[in-house]
């Protein structure tokens, strides 16, 4: 993704490492890089070490656990099962929704058990992700375009969008639960009598509306940052050339804001795929609002190892989505981060 006029290359001259980049390459520079490398290693060591302890170690443990059988009484059958190596059976059981059968082997999980919810939870997770991220992108873009305009009270709007962002998700969930209560302001305002958390679609929409309210500001601010990188002269020039507003948006705004937009969408997508707090507090996962994260949490107390397998599956799904974004949709997070559009990687 070579973007000559992207926001990153505008920033590049300010980058601290720039003088070193331009230094003539020779023996001296090699030495310098080696010295800097040693320094960097020392400076990075605490962070890498800390992240290894709090992330890498648990992940490896989880993967090891996922290949072990859960010992103890099986909640579905009431039989005692021995622990020991399980091979891929934990994964197999989730994907094919199988539960241990009384006489050995497996049977289809009875409806209502956790084992029978894998595909519905996956579907719910993707449904929430696609709907919320789409709505947030469209609304966020609109908000960003408004906030980029010059008008009196602009700083007030920019301050106001930070309010939903600053409210903790747990509080957001309780707030919207109250708004969507049967006698609450939601029903009053829309003149409806919906039991919002009582059936599938209203419950889903309650989660979606609350999530969109909470996270659109973040999206809007990211897109706004991208919009502000576009030099005004580009628009002036296009205007002189007779481009209509729609043409200016399609031919200038969209392509130039695309790198920032893709990163914003990537971040929001990965965040939505691990959605937990909102549906857990708002609906308790009832009425088909159980996401993969909620399913893992519900499984933990029924068997660590099966939960570890499910969390590994969740992790792999999120990783794959991130990979697709970076590889095929050109969301180059690292380049965006290093502020070096010329980075070859």
């Amino acid at each position: 993704m070579a973007t000559e006029v992207g926001p990153t290359s505008v920033k590049a001259p300010a980058s601290g490492g720039a003088p070193i980049h331009h230094a003539p390459k020779g023996v001296g520079e090699d030495n310098r890089i080696a010295t800097q490398g040693r320094w960097a290693a020392w400076l990075l060591a605490p962070t890498i070490l800390a992240l290894s302890v709090v992330i890498v170690y648990p992940i490896i443990t989880a993967i090891v656990m996922s290949f072990q059988k859960d010992a103890g009484l099986d909640p579905a059958t009431g039989l005692f099962t021995e622990g020991g190596p399980a091979g891929l059976s934990n994964y197999y059981n989730w994907i094919f929704q199988q539960c241990p059968a009384p006489g050995g082997g497996t049977v289809e999980c009875p409806p209502g058990t956790l084992g029978a919810q894998f595909w519905s939870a996956t579907g719910t997770t993707f449904f929430f992700t696609i709907v919320t991220v789409t709505l947030e992108t469209v609304l966020g873009f609109w908000m960003a375009v408004i906030m980029a305009r010059a008008f009196k009270g602009r700083s007030l709007v920019r301050a106001a969008v930070l309010v939903p962002w600053a409210i903790p998700t747990a509080v957001t969930a309780k707030l919207w639960l109250f708004i969507f209560a049967f006698e609450g302001i939601g029903n009053k305002l829309f003149n409806t009598t919906v039991l919002w958390t009582g059936s599938e679609w209203p419950a889903r929409w309650a989660v979606i509306i609350a999530d969109v309210w909470k996270t659109t500001p973040f999206m809007a601010l990211l897109i706004l940052a991208g919009l502000q990188m576009i030099p005004a002269e580009v628009y002036e020039a296009a205007k002189v050339d007779g481009a209509s507003a729609w043409q200016r948006f399609r031919m200038i705004t969209l392509p130039l804001v695309k790198p920032a937009l893709m990163v914003a969408i990537l971040f929001r997508t990965l965040d939505a795929l691990r959605m937990f707090d909102l549906p857990y507090i708002l609906t308790g996962g009832a009425n088909n609002t159980t996401t993969l994260s909620i399913l893992v949490i519900n499984q933990i107390r029924q068997g660590f190892n099966a939960a570890a397998a499910l969390s590994t599956i969740t992790f792999i799904i999120i990783f794959l989505v991130a990979f697709i974004f970076v590889r095929f949709l050109g969301a180059n997070v690292v380049e965006q981060q290093t502020g070096a559009g010329k980075g070859k990687k």
Partner: peptide, 23 residues
């Protein structure tokens, strides 16, 4: 290193919770 750190921040909390719960 940057990729590792960015990846770490996008990490799903549920992937950590099971082993930590047991540990």
């Amino acid at each position: 290193v940057l990729g590792f750190i960015l990846g770490a921040s996008m990490f799903p909390g549920v992937a950590l919770i099971t082993p930590l719960f047991q540990l």
